[in-house]
Design a protein around this nucleic acid. Structure first.
Length: 271
DNA sequence: CTTTAGGCCTGACGGC
DNA sequence: TGCCGTCAGGCCTAAA
């Protein structure tokens, strides 16, 4: 499932292929995504020239010389750049046809993704307002987490997955970073110390950077934009490994549900 | 303000 | 073999 590293990997792969290209059309084969694809979007994009493909949190922004589109890959979405005669697959919901003969297809079996119009006046899309800092940017660090966490009684894992606190930290990387920082996912966020938050912030950054470096984790549905697999999944230490030995101490990893999410952790290494 | 539950989806999986 | 219930998961929205 695309987390921030997968989205960034997709962006880096597609940006040079899309930048400067002119859009011929957008074909909407299945408008019913997380939100309906706006009926006016194809007309808005037709004839527009792509300025760049950027990212905010897990949103991809296809910026054109006349507004553009906002995409989210949800749980199972992927973008694929291919020739126009490439056979369509089931769940290819959107087809962005370029003037150069190539296409970008949004493939999303579970349809948790979305494709919406960016405001034409250059204003930020409502979905982007109120988001927390980028975890790889300059505004995110342990002191920020510490300050925002005071008084919060919910679990620290839910806290770092809150998009208003820091964006793009999904279940996989939250689980991994908490393990590396030695913090139990169920601890109340307000009781985690400043020193622990400094460690945690650094591990969040490191684990995301490592995953981007390696091309993104692959779980089940995710494909890189060229269709190949990422391979970071092999290096996950605790996520999805409940019952298996802790890679640090050998004790069996435990699992519990925190905020409706599966969370595995080592009862010995994480306090 | 924070926190929680519900809902959107399909495919994989286990049980019978 | 086939049917069916359960689960997974990002993240918005509504409600507590």
């Amino acid at each position: 499932m695309p987390e921030l590293p997968e989205v960034e990997t997709t962006r880096r792969g597609l940006e040079p292929l899309l930048s400067g290209q002119t859009i011929r059309s957008l074909e909407v084969r299945q408008p019913r995504l997380r939100w309906p694809v706006p009926p006016e979007l194809p007309a808005r994009l037709a004839g527009a020239r792509v300025r760049r493909l950027s990212r905010r949190a897990k949103y991809l922004l296809l910026e054109t010389d006349q507004s553009g589109a906002l995409l989210h890959l949800g749980m199972s979405g992927s973008l694929r750049y291919c020739a126009a005669d490439t056979p369509l697959r089931r769940h290819d919901h959107l087809i962005l046809q370029l003037e150069n003969g190539f296409q970008v297809r949004l493939h999303d079996p579970r349809r948790f993704g979305c494709c919406l119009a960016l405001p034409p006046d250059g204003a930020p899309h409502p979905l982007l307002v109120g988001l927390g800092p980028e975890p790889l940017g300059p505004d995110f660090d342990g002191d920020w987490l510490f300050r925002r966490s005071r008084g919060r009684r919910g679990p620290v894992k839910a806290f770092i997955m809150d998009q208003a606190i820091v964006v793009g930290v999904g279940n996989i990387y939250a689980t991994e970073a908490l393990f590396l920082a030695g913090i139990r996912p169920g601890r109340a966020a307000g009781r985690v110390t400043r020193a622990e938050y400094r460690r945690l912030a650094e591990h969040i950054r490191a684990v995301l950077e490592a995953a981007i470096e390696q091309g993104g984790t692959t779980l089940r549905d995710f494909r890189r934009e060229d269709g190949s697999h990422g391979y970071f999944a092999q290096t996950l230490r605790v996520y999805g490994r409940a019952g298996l030995p802790c890679p640090a101490c050998g004790n069996p990893l435990r699992t519990r549900r925190i905020g409706q999410r599966a969370s595995s952790y080592c009862p010995a290494c994480q306090k």
